[in-house]
């Protein structure tokens, strides 16, 4: 499984109820590779990420993550696979409010059953991203710190693939560049491939591999 690419998509087809159809012929992302998928609003990039994460079912084609056909799995097995092998970073972070930074990071291994991520390891990941108050509730952290917690949560289980959906859309250019740098570095450190979708032209130069949807 370790030799398999982080992501392989072949002949993907998803039809919306209104008739519009998302098609993607072939896409492969090697282990540790980072790629930017640029798309205008409404092009279907969020749908594509949901399909890759197994949150939606395609009408045709194959999606493999770390050699596993995602949609061949069903129910709890697919959920656990997603938790272990796919990290997700959102524009609005989607942290669990009322929980501490550490609990947000530990939620990933707790629900996916991924081993090897205890409190000490989770604190280490947070510290590497500059969070020195792991016991603080996330709503009491600054926006920048919240984003770091979200990144730490995405890479805590050292997933094969990290999906980032417009992670810098709400930031000014300087902070956007810093944030993207942090995400890319965190993925490199955890050995995870990164598929980032963004309509921000400033991100274009930060990726060696980029494509339009």
């Amino acid at each position: 499984m370790a030799d398999e690419p982080a992501l392989r998509i072949d002949s993907l087809r998803f039809a919306y109820p209104g008739g519009w159809t998302l098609r993607l012929g072939a896409l492969t992302l090697a282990r540790g590779e980072q790629m930017l998928l640029a798309a205008r609003s409404g092009a279907g990039k969020s749908t594509l990420l949901s399909l890759i994460a197994g949150l939606m079912d395609p009408h045709g084609g194959v999606i493999e993550v770390a050699g596993q056909k995602v949609h061949a799995l069903h129910g709890a097995a697919r959920d656990r696979f997603r938790g272990r092998h796919i990290g997700m970073i959102f524009q609005t972070f989607n942290l669990l409010h009322g929980f501490t930074a550490l609990e947000n990071v530990l939620a990933a291994p707790a629900f996916s059953g991924a081993g090897g991520v205890d409190a000490s390891a989770a604190k280490g990941v947070l510290a590497s991203l500059g969070i020195d108050r792991p016991g603080a509730r996330v709503e009491n952290l600054s926006v920048g710190q919240q984003q770091r917690v979200a990144v730490a949560r995405a890479v805590a289980c050292r997933p094969a693939l990290v999906l980032a959906d417009e992670p810098t859309a709400s930031l000014d250019p300087e902070n956007a560049a810093n944030a993207m740098g942090m995400i890319q570095e965190a993925c490199r450190a955890s050995g995870s491939a990164l598929l980032c979708v963004s309509h921000d032209p400033a991100m274009w130069e930060r990726f060696a591999r980029k494509e339009h949807l």
């Binding site: 949150l55 129910g75 656990r80 997603r82 942290l95 990933a108 629900f111 996916s112 059953g113």
Partner: peptide, 11 residues
């Protein structure tokens, strides 16, 4: 979010 992190519907 819990579902994304691996929680099943049953859980």
């Amino acid at each position: 979010v819990l579902r994304v992190l691996g929680a099943s519907k049953g859980r």
